[in-house]
Design a protein around this nucleic acid. Structure first.
Lengths: 147, 147
DNA sequence: GGTGAAAGAAGGAAGAG
DNA sequence: CTCTTCCTTCTTTCACC
């Protein structure tokens, strides 16, 4: 379904989604036509979910944080996913294999706001415990623009 | 520095980063040339940090994982950041306030590859311990891939 | 997966407001 | 100084092998 050439194409698009098909073709060693066909197929199959520009935050002293979540026994992780979706501050959600059960990433205005968000997650009945990690610094390799 | 038309352009690129400049131009009511110049300016000013494709991990057969890192006493977190930069699989790096000291996110082909990456991080002398979280499912709110 | 031709998009130069 | 209009070059798309 997804072969090695597809993976190369995906690796390129993950780094620079605006790169022309012709340039991607050069890098993976094919002509433009099959690369365009592969990209179209990957989009239709849902392997590529979309393309987004990464925009710099208007840095206002907000906090970036992760919260690890442990569920009470017998709870389906899909219930956690639903809770994450309902909390508007949550920007990313991960179901984890093992301990913890889930990880959410969110951005808040200050520590009071952080407390509110964490309590919104905790006060749902299915959460046995949380542990919050506050981000002091971060970088992302996908943010490099290649010409 | 960033005017209303810039904001419209950013809103479009956030939704579909692969949209042709000509089509963006049509939507914001300008011709293609100034739109291209604006996009170039926004890139150079760092407002646009990059363009990424959102890939459904489960279909590539690759693993997405986080590793929490605890440093041995007296180690500067900047040393950890350097290590993270040297491991090519690492896609995101976070310095954490408290415990753990750092968090890295990376993508690997399989469990053997995962072991290799974790050991590359562990075998650096400054790492006191690690804990790896394997992602089973993930989502991002569309406008949220910013770091 | 590749080819070639038509359609379309990007990039540069010149000029109007 | 920014937008528009052309013009040239490069890219994408499609029928076909």
């Amino acid at each position: 379904m997804v072969d090695d050439i597809d993976r190369e194409i995906l690796a390129v698009l993950r780094t620079n989604a605006r790169m022309p098909v012709s340039e991607i073709a050069r890098r993976v060693g094919l002509s433009a036509t099959p690369v365009a066909r592969r990209i179209e197929r990957l989009e239709n199959e849902g392997v590529i979910e979309g393309y987004v520009a990464i925009i710099k935050d208007s840095d206002t002293g907000e906090l970036d944080a992760f919260t690890e979540i442990r569920l009470s026994g017998g709870t389906d992780t899909r219930e956690l996913e639903e809770i994450a979706r309902r909390v508007p501050e949550v920007r990313q959600y991960f179901t984890i294999a093992g301990d913890p059960d889930g990880l959410v990433r969110f951005r808040v205005r200050n520590v009071d706001h952080l407390q509110k968000v964490v309590n919104a997650i905790r006060g749902t009945g299915i959460v046995a415990g949380t542990k919050t990690l506050i981000v002091m610094a971060a970088w992302d390799r996908a943010q490099v623009i290649e010409a």
